[in-house]
Amino acid sequence: MHSPLRIAFFGSSLVSSYWNGAATYYRGIVRALHQRGHHVTFFEPDAFERQQHRDIEDPDWAKVVVYPAHGEADAASALEQARGADLIVKASGVGVFDEFLEREVLALRSPTTWIAFWDVDAPATLERMLADPNDALRAHVPRYDLVLTYGGGQRVIDAYRGLGARECVPIYNALDPETHHPVAVDHRFAADLGFLGNRLPDREARVRRFFFDAASKAPEFDYLLGGSGWDDVELPSNVTRLGHVSTRDHNAFNCSAHMVLNINRDSMARFGFSPPTRVFEAAGAGACLVTDAWDGIEMFLEPGREVLIADSAEQVNQHLRAIGPVLARQIGERARSRMLREHTYAHRVAQLESLLEARLRAAA
């Protein structure tokens, strides 16, 4: 970019991953923007006990504004602080006052301020809007200067264009090599297969199918379950429950299990081209990654060489039986090399800058 941008970002949380799977994505994007000289202020509500479960202190690569979540007046006050920024982003899934923010942020547009909607869960957002003609967000989509998405490929682009979006561009998840990298094995996380993911209604059935069923069918293996919400679930005897795993332990988790499992949420699997942050975290740490099958995986990692694909619990266990430590390490190292070569947040922010420059030229 010719000159640094002042960017105001309304999201769920930059400083806490507690019930906030988008934290890794936000941190990667915002840190990379800072490294390119841009100034980001991240506005997040004091909600869902996230401030009590912080993973990081306020970083030096962003200004964090935590606003109260008592009423819409609190959100309105935060919006007023963002007035005058070059780019104001409303992310999906802030968690409180989303409808209010999605409507009122548009009042901050000016000839020198662009307003973007950044959908960090595009498949689910689109399925919700397409199922309900009266969904509040539908009316606002055509009014945003730009819709950015965390993934979703051509189906997501076409769906947003069908709802009147002026422009829709996926900015895929990526690796922040400063945050996710190989570390020493930590025996707390030693297992044959590790899975890290919060219990969510649109993923639970797939977790049961790919993880719990795999554990039930292979009592000779040890399975490790990390993430919030699983406390009252009856688990097979060879599954160890960890509860919430802080982001500061993710590298150790990914480096200590023989293999790491990724399980997509229903809507992301249906749309494809929506690799979650876990894929990049695990690959960046050099883990041998097994993922459930979804369209577009080969755009990020080569199946069989850089990642293992499973269509069932039986296939998960086949991989555990067939892949020894040496080959598992080779698969993880290839995945890490591919990420560093093509899929870092520096790559994503360069793409975003090119997009904004093209719009600046068009506006001029």
Rank of each mutant, 00 (worst) to 15 (best):
P4R: 02
A8C: 12
S13F: 04
S13L: 10
Y18D: 05
A22L: 06
Y25G: 03
V30R: 02
L33Y: 01
R36E: 14
G37R: 09
F43Q: 00
P45T: 12
D46M: 13
D55Y: 11
D55W: 07
E57L: 13
D58K: 10
W61R: 09
K63P: 00
K63R: 10
V65S: 09
V66G: 06
A76D: 14
A78V: 06
Q81A: 11
Q81P: 00
D86Q: 05
I88V: 15
V89Y: 02
S92H: 14
F97Q: 04
E104W: 05
L108R: 08
T113I: 09
W114M: 13
I115S: 03
A122W: 02
E127M: 12
M129D: 10
A131R: 13
D135R: 12
A136E: 15
L148I: 08
Y150P: 00
Y150T: 06
G152W: 04
I157M: 12
I157S: 11
Y160E: 09
A165I: 02
A165T: 02
E167R: 12
C168N: 05
I171G: 08
Y172Q: 12
D176Q: 08
A184E: 11
R188L: 12
F189A: 11
A190H: 09
D192R: 04
D192E: 04
D192I: 03
G197Y: 01
G197P: 00
V207R: 09
A215V: 14
A215P: 09
S216L: 13
L224D: 05
G227K: 08
S228A: 14
G229T: 08
N238G: 11
R241E: 03
L242W: 07
H244E: 02
H250L: 11
F253P: 00
N254V: 05
C255K: 07
N262S: 10
R265L: 11
S267M: 12
M268V: 02
R270N: 09
S274N: 15
R278V: 07
R278F: 04
V279Y: 00
A282N: 12
A283M: 13
G284A: 05
A287E: 03
E298K: 15
F300M: 10
F300R: 03
E302D: 14
E302W: 06
R305Y: 09
R305L: 13
D311P: 00
Q315D: 15
V316S: 03
Q318G: 07
R321S: 08
A322M: 14
G324S: 14
L327I: 07
I331K: 02
S337I: 12
S337D: 13
R338K: 14
E342G: 14
A346T: 12
V349Y: 01
L352Q: 07
L352W: 06
A358I: 04
L360M: 13
A364L: 14
